[in-house]
Simulated assay, not measured.
Amino acid sequence: MPRLSAANRHRVGFTLNGKPVVVEAEPRLLATDALRHGLGATGTHVGCEHGACGACTVLIDGAPARACLTLAVQLEGREVTTIEGLAPAQDRLSVLQAAFRRHHALQCGFCTAGILISLEAFLREQPEPSEHALREVVGGHLCRCTGYTPIIAAGREAAALLRQASQSTAAEPLDV
Rank of each mutant, 00 (worst) to 15 (best):
L30K: 11
H141K: 06
C53A: 08
R9C: 13
P127H: 01
T32I: 14
R156D: 00
I117N: 07
E84M: 06
G38K: 09
G13W: 02
H45E: 12
H104Y: 14
E120K: 10
G43R: 05
T57Q: 09
P150R: 05
R101W: 02
Q97H: 10
Q90C: 10
T112Y: 13
C53Y: 05
P88I: 00
R124F: 02
I115Y: 00
R102Y: 01
S118T: 06
R11I: 05
E120M: 05
V176G: 15
A159H: 05
T15S: 13
D61E: 10
A6R: 15
A154I: 08
A158Q: 10
S94W: 01
Q97I: 07
D175S: 13
F14N: 02
P2C: 01
V58H: 04
P150G: 01
L162V: 09
R66P: 11
R92C: 06
R66M: 15
V137C: 10
H104V: 07
L174D: 06
H104P: 02
S168P: 03
L71S: 03
R144F: 10
F14Y: 01
V176Q: 09
R9D: 03
C145N: 10
A153Q: 12
I117D: 02
H50F: 13
L106N: 01
P64K: 11
H45F: 04
G38M: 06
A34T: 03
A99M: 04
V22C: 11
R11Y: 13
T70D: 05
H50W: 14
E49N: 10
N8M: 11
L35V: 01
G109E: 03
T57A: 11
I152P: 00
R135M: 01
R28P: 00
Q164I: 12
L69R: 01
G18R: 02
V23W: 03
A72T: 09
Q107C: 06
T169V: 09
T32R: 01
V138S: 00
E24P: 03
H104N: 14
R3D: 15
T57S: 13
Q90G: 12
E157S: 08
C56A: 04
C108E: 12
E136K: 14
